[in-house]
Every structure is written in structure tokens, then in C-alpha cells.
């Protein structure tokens, strides 16, 4: 601690990790409660952060409360390390906490995420922090907070299945593709934040700690390591994840979540891994997809490789 204090590597106009110590303590208490009751939404005194609600204020407060000077931070937005939100949040913590940052999933000790869980399986000791816009999975069907709290308290979750029923009756299958409700540890129905349902199975028995922060709604919830997480479904319409007929155009992966990218205005498009680190890592190891040599596709790939450089130039 002393050594850290001596050579403060962060902007000393701020307390370490931006939030004051009392606030971090309060959030840690909420986190402990959340970990003790998997899937239960713990209210906390959310603070104003220097960015707008909806951009990850909840996730940032959780990250600020769990991060230490020796941590390595990775921030992803829609699976990518190089989008505006990810770059800004990473730079923010570099400045106010002086922590090392990385794009490599395996090197990070804290990963703040929006919309994705990294393709590479997480390890024990890693912390995955989700940014959550709407923590209440029942909200769309039951607008009253007093009522949804009772429903959670008494485990009255029939309404959740009404939502899935509506999907099947309209589309013939469960058409919910993101924010797909899960049952945590056999007790609480939880919204997994807007991750694609492709990622839902990764939450089950994950070795990492998963923390969820909702800044606007001021709720924190968590899934401790090795916890049962079941996606809700019907007996005759079981839960299924998305599948693509294509492989990733750049790295050829067939088991990852793919984004469709429009390349030109002549109908050119490709499907690439949404997890940019996963894709780049595979390409480095020599895996090639069908469009790996295409100049337009390469241009897209290059922009993600150089993001760290641009970020440093920006400072």
C-alpha cells in the first residue's frame, strides 16, 4: 500500500479509481450481499459518473470498487475492444486508477463488458463486470416495482413464461435473442443484461465471479463462481442458442458469435467474430477465414488491431 502511495501512477486530482473510499465501501457491501444471494437485486446508492446513464455507469462503479492498483483491466463493448465506449472507459481507468489495460482476455483480472461474454473461457480469479441497463426481467410485463419485488420474494415467476409464450405464439419459436431470462441457483429469475442468448450457457458454472451493475436503476446483482444458471424455456420448446451457417470471414471460427458487417453498397458483407480479441488471436495463430485476403475485410480487421495505438496517441 505504501509503495503504491509513493509512486501514484494515476491522476492524483482524483481519489484512486475515481470514487471516494466511503462510496466504494458501500458498493462493496452491496456486492458481498449480491454474491451471497445469487441473482438477487441489491439496491445501492448509485453515484453520478462522468458519463451519461446508459453508457455503463453501473458497470464502472462496480469496476471502480473492485479494482486495485495491481489489476489488469479489459473493457469490451459488443465484444469489441476498440469501440468508443470501450476505449473511453479503458482510458478513464488508466487515468484515475493507473491500472494496466489489455485486450487479451486471459491477461485481464477485471473485465468490464457490455453485451458480450468473451469467447475464451474465463479462469478462477477473474472478475466479469456487466453493464446493465434494466436489471428487472419482469419489468416489461409488470410495471409496478412493489409488485415485482413481491414476485421475486415469493418466487412467483409464471409471468416470465407468459413472455416466452407470447414469443412462441407470434413467431413459432422463442424469439427473444438477447437479455434472455435465466434462473440463478434455482431461486431468482435474473436478467443477464443484454448479452445475446448465445452467451447464456457460458454463465452456468463459470469459474469467474460475475458482477452486474445497473447505474440508472441503482441495482447490483451477482453470480458467484460455479453457480447453476438455467435459461427459462418450455418442455416442448427447449432453450437454444443462435447458430450461423457461415464461419468467421477472417479467422474461420465456427463456434463463436458472429456479427454481420456490411462492406460496400453493392451487397458485399461478411460475418466476423464479435469478440475482436478472440478473432485476432486466432488469426495470429494462422487460422484463416474465407475472406481473410479480401482488401475490404482486411481494412476492417486492421482498424481493430491499431486501436491501442490510437488511444495512446489521443492522450
Amino acid at each position: 500500500m505504501n509503495a503504491v502511495a509513493k509512486k501514484a501512477s494515476w491522476d492524483e486530482a482524483y481519489n484512486f479509481a475515481y470514487l471516494d473510499e466511503q462510496t466504494k465501501r458501500m458498493i462493496r457491501r452491496a456486492l458481498l450481499k449480491a454474491v451471497a444471494i445469487p441473482g438477487y437485486q441489491v439496491p445501492f446508492g448509485g453515484r453520478e459518473m462522468p458519463l451519461a446513464y446508459g453508457w455503463g455507469t453501473g458497470g464502472m462503479q462496480v469496476t471502480a470498487s473492485v479494482i486495485g492498483p495491481s489489476d489488469t483491466l479489459k473493457v469490451i463493448d459488443q465484444g469489441a475492444d476498440d469501440t468508443t465506449n470501450a476505449v473511453s472507459i479503458r482510458r478513464f481507468f488508466k487515468r484515475v486508477a493507473g491500472v494496466a489495460t489489455t485486450e487479451a482476455t486471459e491477461e485481464a483480472s477485471v473485465i468490464q463488458t457490455r453485451h458480450r461474454i468473451p469467447e475464451k473461457p474465463l479462469k478462477e480469479g477473474q472478475v466479469l463486470v456487466y453493464q446493465v441497463p434494466q436489471p428487472e426481467p419482469l419489468r416489461k410485463l409488470e410495471p409496478r416495482e412493489t409488485e415485482t419485488r413481491k414476485m421475486h420474494g415469493y418466487a412467483e415467476y409464471g409471468l416470465m413464461h407468459v413472455r416466452l409464450y407470447e414469443d412462441i405464439s407470434r413467431f413459432g419459436h422463442i424469439a427473444t435473442t438477447y437479455s434472455y431470462p435465466v434462473m440463478v441457483n434455482g431461486r431468482y429469475v435474473m436478467s443477464p443484461s443484454p448479452i445475446p442468448k448465445f452467451d447464456n450457457p457460458k454463465m452456468e458454472n463459470n469459474k469467474a465471479i460475475q458482477l452486474f451493475g445497473a447505474g440508472r436503476e441503482k441495482r447490483i446483482y451477482a453470480i458467484p463462481p460455479y453457480t447453476r444458471v438455467k435459461s427459462l424455456d418450455f418442455d416442448d420448446h427447449p432453450f437454444e442458442v443462435q447458430r450461423w451457417p457461415q464461419a468467421c470471414a477472417l479467422c474461420g471460427a465456427r463456434n463463436s458469435y458472429l456479427d454481420e458487417v456490411v462492406l460496400d453498397d453493392k451487397g458485399g458483407r461478411m460475418f466476423v467474430c464479435s469478440d475482436t480479441h478472440f478473432c485476432a488471436d486466432r488469426q495470429e495463430k494462422g487460422h484463416r477465414g474465407p475472406m481473410a485476403a479480401d482488401p475490404a475485410a482486411r481494412a476492417f480487421a486492421r482498424s481493430s488491431e491499431t486501436s491501442e495505438q490510437k488511444e495512446d496517441d489521443g492522450r
Binding site: L141, E156, G158, L159, H161, V162, Y165, E166, I168, S169, R170, F234, D235, D236, H237
Partner: peptide
């Protein structure tokens, strides 16, 4: 919620899980 969903809500509330 559709008419079918309205009628089915109580069934789902008492544990029916077969669409």
C-alpha cells in the same frame, strides 16, 4: 398480452411448462 397468454398465465403461474 395475447388472449391465449392471458388465459395461460394462471396455468404458468402454478407451474405448467408445456407450451
Amino acid at each position: 398480452v395475447s388472449a391465449g397468454g392471458n388465459v395461460g398465465e394462471r396455468l404458468m403461474a402454478i407451474g405448467a411448462r408445456h407450451y
